[in-house]
Design a protein around this nucleic acid. Structure first.
Length: 480
DNA sequence: ACCCACTTGAT
DNA sequence: TCAAGTGGG
């Protein structure tokens, strides 16, 4: 057995502030990175070309980081439960280390791999949490149960100590030429492009791939945007959010580094207003954490509604509605603007994610799981815990005691896109429409036809009534 | 068992 | 001004 430890990257595509990676480095100088292109994920229908494109870019950057540190990043393509232990055995590695994840698929897969490594006498890092600031077992209610509501979770979580970032990986050694040949003989390949894998994304990316770009983005946001976040985040036409979601999904940036940046911003804050704004952004980090804990504690969330009333809810089945929503031609300007933004950028402003999700479930009365899936197929930051959490929040089916949450598209547009700037950007055929009418959607059938803009596919008022009736009916069934 | 509090709500 | 249900202490 050699002194080699393979560090398996999954959603931690970075060499700085990576706790599992540093744990490997503490045991040996010979640390080699490994990444597995997993067909179970890449060939699923929850995949987005833009996300794969970003991920491949991040892997390219990660390869460079490994070379700079004195080692290599190996790329594998296959089922991890087979190829990871196989590679470890072929290279007679003494260990395979990685960071633990909350997703049900990930945990199931990792358990199989742990067993395979144990059998071969290869060391592993047991359940090392890296992508969250506090481990799920640490955050419990007074009676020891798991939180299902955000507010009390936040109260508890925000008082718990948070670890500082760990150092960047440096000064390691990699495989010899002979060992590299063994690796290649056992499936190590050159990093393919997204196109090679069958994913075409011709558009730009809302964030440049790689660790350097993510850290720069964080630094910039923590110095500027975070101080007006509380206000600016509400307006989709304003660049008021961090746009770090994709970097956080793939762990291109460490969460301790992110938290540290908020603490430093806090120290530099000179007004109650900026302090509150920074606090608000910290709460968003806590939402991410909350949903990850929730996914870990209640893996059934991944399958569907958490709340009894919404299990077997009589959602409608209407492909015409679904297609219109996907393509941004519902006839509701703010909804269509948002959907077109996502289709084109692979990213949607969070305010709009709530608007279109509410519209999907409460107006089109479609099963939230379909909308959740479409988001996964389009978003650069698509992440099971966050996306599922957001959709269940909008559908009222999840972790929040507020069943009748219905957004009115018109009032949302009036409040958050008062000048119609966002709508006009993404729905250019409506540019000439008077702002007031643009926001309310008060555009005559004749004018819609003339402009080439669709008629409203449903009536918000009527659909709202139908939803409430269905909900009451469902509640009756449950309680009887 | 009581009561407080509740991301981004609507009219 | 109303809401509306319930988790959590």
């Amino acid at each position: 057995m050699s002194d080699l430890i393979l560090f398996w990257h999954r959603r931690d595509l970075r060499t700085s502030d990576n706790t599992g990676l540093i744990a490997a480095k503490e045991q040996t100088r010979k640390v080699v990175g490994i990444f597995c292109l997993d067909p179970n994920i890449l060939e699923s229908d929850d995949i987005a070309p833009v996300r794969v494109t970003y991920m491949i870019g991040c892997l390219q950057a990660l390869q460079k980081s490994y070379v700079e540190a004195g080692s290599q990043l190996l790329i594998l393509h296959g089922n991890p439960t087979q190829v990871i232990p196989q590679m470890a055995a072929a290279l007679t590695a003494k260990g395979v280390f990685w960071n633990w994840d909350v997703e049900p698929y990930s945990q199931k897969r990792d358990t199989v791999i742990v067993d395979a490594l144990k059998e071969k006498g290869i060391e592993f890092l047991d359940r090392n949490w890296d992508q969250i600031l506090n481990v799920p077992d640490e955050i419990r209610t007074g009676t020891g149960s798991q939180y299902t509501v955000y507010s009390p979770f936040w109260k508890n979580w925000s008082t718990k100590p948070k670890a500082k970032p760990v150092p960047k990986l440096e000064d390691i050694s990699g495989l010899t030429a002979a060992e590299m040949q063994i690796a290649q003989a056992n499936g190590a390949i050159a990093l393919p492009s997204a196109k090679d894998l069958g994913f075409i994304w011709d558009g730009d990316l809302v964030i440049e791939p790689g660790e350097v770009a993510a850290l720069e983005r964080l630094e910039e946001f923590a110095a500027t945007g975070i101080n007006s976040y509380q206000e600016d985040r509400n307006f989709p036409a304003v660049d008021g959010t961090s746009r770090l979601s994709a970097a956080l999904k793939f762990g291109v940036i460490g969460i301790r580094t992110v938290w540290q940046a908020t603490l430093e911003a806090m120290e530099n804050s000179r007004s109650d207003e900026t302090t509150a704004a920074i606090r608000t952004w910290q709460q968003e980090i806590a939402w991410r954490e909350f949903y990850q804990h929730a996914m870990y504690n209640f893996p059934e969330l991944a399958e569907g509604a958490f709340r009894e009333t919404f299990k077997n809810f009589p959602w409608e089945s209407n492909d015409e509605y679904y297609q219109a929503w996907c393509e941004g031609r519902t006839g509701y300007p703010i909804v269509d603007a948002a959907m077109r933004q996502m289709n084109e950028l692979g990213w949607m402003h969070n305010r709009c994610r709530m608007i279109v999700a509410s519209f999907f479930t409460k107006d089109l009365l479609l099963d939230p799981r379909l909308g959740e899936k479409y988001f996964m197929q389009k978003l650069i930051d698509g992440d099971l815990s966050a996306n599922n959490g957001g959709w269940q929040w909008s559908a009222s089916s999840g972790m929040d005691p507020k069943p009748v949450r219905i957004f009115n598209p018109a009032s949302q547009a009036q409040k958050f896109d008062a000048e119609g700037e966002y709508i006009r950007q993404w729905v250019p055929e409506l540019r000439s429409v008077d702002t007031g009418d643009l926001l309310t959607g008060n555009i005559t059938p004749l004018e819609r036809d003339a402009l080439g803009y669709p008629q409203p596919i449903v009536d918000h008022k009527i659909q709202q009534r139908i939803f409430k009736d269905k909900y009451q009916q469902r509640k009756g069934v449950i309680s009887s």
